[in-house]
């Protein structure tokens, strides 16, 4: 269904400067990974706290509020370095099952992160109870790890 879109993207040749340069693709990929490191750090510091470990002397809400600018900043960097990588090889991405799985998971995970996870981290801990925090922390770690696995496999197995 989306093949015409990806063929159109391929025809635009905006990604040509990346695929024809021997430096652009590696450097964009390096920046994508650096953003991933910051993303995982800002997620884990909160998720570990949700599991009842890590910085337990601080309320979950404080850790989450402090981590949020780094989380959002890292997500923007991921997007800015991810889009050119798709544009440089649209047809490879279209035929990669890992790419589509990553995109589906990303959609679900972003919604989860900015709705349910946000709500649980900001809520009164005594009211929410420890179980919800643990569930949300584990689901968050699981989903983001899965996205990273799919992302890595686009390059390795497509």
């Amino acid at each position: 269904m989306l093949l015409p879109l990806f063929e159109w993207l391929d025809g635009l040749r905006v990604g040509d400067w990346i695929s024809t340069s021997s430096y652009a693709a590696p450097l964009i990929n390096v920046m994508h990974i650096m953003a991933l490191v910051i993303l995982f750090g800002s997620l884990l510091i909160v998720d570990v706290r949700l599991l009842g470990r890590g910085m337990t002397q601080q309320p979950v809400a404080r850790v989450a509020r402090d981590a949020r600018p780094w989380l959002i900043g890292a997500l923007i960097c991921m997007l800015l370095t991810g889009i050119p990588q798709v544009l440089s090889l649209p047809i490879r991405e279209y035929y990669s099952p890992f790419f589509w799985m990553k995109m589906r998971l990303l959609l679900v995970t972003l919604i989860f992160t900015f709705t349910l996870r946000h709500k649980v981290t900001m809520a009164d801990e005594a009211r929410v109870g420890p179980i919800w925090g643990k569930v949300v922390g584990l689901v968050s770690i699981g989903l983001w790890t899965w996205i990273a696995v799919e992302g890595r496999l686009i390059g390795l197995l497509s």
Partner: peptide
Amino acid sequence: LISLAMFAGLVVM
């Protein structure tokens, strides 16, 4: 890669 992102991410924080 993924264990690195977790480890280095927490070092960066």
